[in-house]
Every structure is written in C-alpha cells, then in structure tokens.
Design a protein around this nucleic acid. Structure first.
Lengths: 241, 241
DNA sequence: CGCCGTCTTGATTCTGTTCAACTCTTGTGG
DNA sequence: CCACAAGAGTTGAACAGAATCAAGACGGCG
C-alpha cells in the first residue's frame, strides 16, 4: 500500500494546503482563497467517517487517494454500498442522509480531505461558483445512483458482476485492473452475497472473458466481448458521470 | 380521473402563467418574473416525455398533478422505474441521463409544467437563487435514489412491498391511500415481476396489515405494525426528501 | 353480452442464499 | 525457516425465494 500504515489523523491544517492538494479537478479549488477548516484523514481499510450531523450540508469529504464506499445499513445489520468513491470524488457528508446508518468507509487505505465550510455558510448561500460546484457534485452522484438502481432492479447476478468488472476496466484503460476491495465489498455493492460473487467470478474466469492474476487484479482481453453480453453500455472513464 | 381525457397539448404559454400555477412550493417561483419558455403538458396514462438532448440541463418538468415515473430500459426491453414523481416534484430533463433509454412516463393522468430555461442559460449560471434551487432538487432526488438502492439491494420481496405501501400511506396521512399505478408499474419500481407483486399483496392482505378496498385503494389500520416488520424507518410525508 | 386488459392463482423451474467444510494466503512467533 | 493461526476466498449440498409459464377471474366498456 502506498499510504503510511498509520491510523493517526494528520492534524488540521489551514486551507492554503489546498493549493498543493494532488486532487485533480477538485470542485472546490474555487475556495482555495477562503479560510475554511480543512483537515486530512488517513484511513485504513475498514475505517469509517461519519458526518457529525447538522443540517447545512457544508461538510465535504474529497477522496484524494484510495477507494471508499458510501454505505448504509439496516437495523438488523444488512449492509448496502450505495456508491463507490474513488480519487477525485466528492462526498457531501449529509448527502447520503446523516445518522449512524450512513457512513463513508475505506475499502482500501485512503487519503481523504475534509472541508468544513459551515463557518462560511452565510456567504456561500449566494456564491454562485460554490453553488454550481455543489450542483454538479449532486448531479454526478445522482446519475450514478440511478444507474445503480437499474442494475439492482433488473440485472441478474452474472450481468451485475460482468458490468462491474467491465466498468472498472473501462475506467482504468488498458492493462491490469486493480480491484481494491474484498469479495464481501463487491457483494454489498452488487446486492449479492459473498459466495455468489465468488461463484460467478469463477464462471466468468472459466469463460475466458476475464483473466485473474491475483484475487484482486485482473485483465479483460476483450472488453467488447464483455459488452456484448450486457443489455446496457459500459460507462467509460470519460463518460463516467 | 380529474384531468380532461385529452391527449392534446395545451399550447405554449408565456411565463406569467406561473403565477397562477397551483404547484405548491415550486422551486422555480424565483423565476416567475423571467421570460422563460413555459408550456403545460396533459399526459394520459402511458404517455411519455423525452428530453430533447443538449447538455445544459436547463429543461425542467414540474409535476402539477398526477403520478409519473422516471424510467430506464435496457436493450432487451427490461424496464426499471428509478423514481416516482408526484405533485410538486421537479425533474431536470437531463438529470436521468438523456437518450431514448430514459424518459418520464405518466402512471396516471398527469399535468406537467415544462420550463425551458436554455435562453437564460448565460445569466442563470451566476444566479444563486436558481443554482440553489437546482442543488436542492438534485439533492432531494439523490437521497431518494440512494434509499432506492438500499431497498433493491438488501430487502426481500415482502419487505419491498410493505415498505412501499407503508411509505405511500405515510405520505398520504390517515385514511384511504390511492395507489395510482398498475401492478406492473409497482413491479418495475420494486425490481420484481407482476405475479410476485400480486402474490405478496395477497399475503399482506391475508395478514391483515393492509386492507384493500379496490385493487388501487387501501387502508393501513396500524402503520406501526407495518414498521415493526421492516428493518428500516418508513419515511414520512414531512421527512420525504 | 362479449371482448380486452388487468389482476390473481397454480404448478414448475431456476437462480441465488444458506450452512458447512475446505483451501489459500499472509503474517506472527518460536 | 517453519509451524501455526486468522482472515479471505472457494466449493459443495440442500433449501428458499422469486421467475416463468399457463390458466382462470374480475371489471370496465363497446
């Protein structure tokens, strides 16, 4: 792993740090000049961030590095991953609904930049650059969530897994695709269970559509062949909303 | 049905009409003074509206009366309803992704107000009232979509139907709940098929949790009893995001 | 009255889950 | 360096839930 194996939190730093933030295309660069509360989190796999309530929706997490998931759970413990978050994704802490039933969880070790814009709430309410950025964040997440709904509602297990593998591959470009999450995480994202994921992966391996180097690395020799088995287009990196 | 059974479109009217628009809490009242292109659509059950492409996401549909659905479909025709739209809901035409695989469909007869703000695009880009309204629309839809994902991913058929009935009831308040959609529509919303929906409804009727007056009207004698069978809280009318 | 679309019900099939055992990898400590 | 433990992944057998296929019931409308 490329991140120091420390569970510690890097102490809060004041915003100018954003200027050196490696996060490409950060929607909040517009705020670089503002005195916002910023802090970096180093998360190890399994660590969680929970929003500390309040209405304003002005606490943001930006994934700088690694893969995380927006999770929900039911009273009886069933977990569902409602969104995968990767480098550059922005999560409005309230966006998923607050409460202990919603949290951000690191699937691999992660670096996350937290911005708390609450102190600026008043002026941001009429800041069109900020509002525009917020809208695009919500819109992008909405598009993904709706695709997720279609997938869960109407694709069978084989199609779900194939689409998932294909999508990850399309976003990675040619070459080896890293799958920075466990079988259980995949299952919770696809609405299946661990054993089913494992079995379906086995079938897909045997079919030759996908070749696994390790349980978390694979190659797709022919993405078009994967697409041909799906009733829907595979979102590409550029088109990824 | 309370809407004239005409398939016709009411001719385009200019915006001042918005002042007399019965749509409560319309997010676009802020624009009442602007010379936007507005038109009213009368839709009969099954009628569709498709966004006519373009990037800007400046075409909006506001449900004035009736129940509609944001639909998607796959190449092979499988349909999934990704969102139910009722009085007061606002749909950004591009929000669901454009193309013939995404459309708004009337589940009952509907009145829909269409606003095309494209001519105002330039000035709206820095109009904070507009941007704020857009954000809240997207955010509300996102919250619902994520709840939908959890439901489809982790609830079984009985829980899905119960939650659906409970939610509709909670939004209606006490008394008779109208179910303005067919079994097939319910199935497409819940990720099930028609027969399963019918069977589960039968089981729920027999259990006494819900009493049906007609196939499209029912009463929930004890909402708490319904909630007790679910692993998640039933969203109420006020809390409906 | 008879037709058509919707809804319901039944019998059967099949997909995915559950429960259980086993393997593989990785990391730890002797 | 090897033995061992713990977690992750895989595989199998039995089961349950939902889909499918098929038939019939109900209700509105010509």
């Amino acid at each position: 792993m490329s991140i120091a194996p420390l569970l510690s939190e890097i102490p809060p730093t004041i915003c100018a740090a954003c200027a050196s933030c490696p996060c490409e295309g950060c929607a909040f660069r517009v705020l670089q000049a503002s005195p916002v509360r910023q802090r970096a989190h180093i998360l190890r796999r399994g660590d969680r961030l929970e929003s500390r309530g309040g209405k304003g929706c002005l606490q943001f997490w930006i994934i700088v590095e690694g893969t995380a998931a927006s999770c929900t759970s039911f009273n009886d413990g069933r977990r569902q991953i409602v969104g995968l978050e990767r480098s550059g994704d922005v999560i409005c802490a309230q966006m998923a609904g607050s409460g202990s039933a919603n949290w951000l969880e690191a699937l691999s070790d992660c670096r996350v930049c937290e911005l708390d814009l609450t102190p600026l709430a008043h002026q941001l309410r009429s800041d069109s650059a900020f509002l525009s950025a917020s809208f695009h964040i919500a819109h992008r997440r909405l598009t993904r969530a709706q695709a997720h709904v279609s997938m869960l509602g109407r694709l069978d297990s084989r199609e779900r897994v194939l689409l998932f593998l294909g999508e990850m591959a399309a976003q990675t470009g040619n070459g080896v695709v890293a799958l920075p999450m466990s079988r259980e995480d995949i299952a919770d994202y696809l609405g299946l269970n661990t054993e089913t994921v494992s079995r379906i992966l086995g079938r897909i391996k045997r079919s030759g559509l996908v070749r696994f180097l390790t349980p978390t690395e694979y190659v797709v020799p022919d993405l078009a062949a994967v697409a041909a088995r799906l009733p829907v287009a595979i979102p590409t990196a550029e088109a990824r909303p």
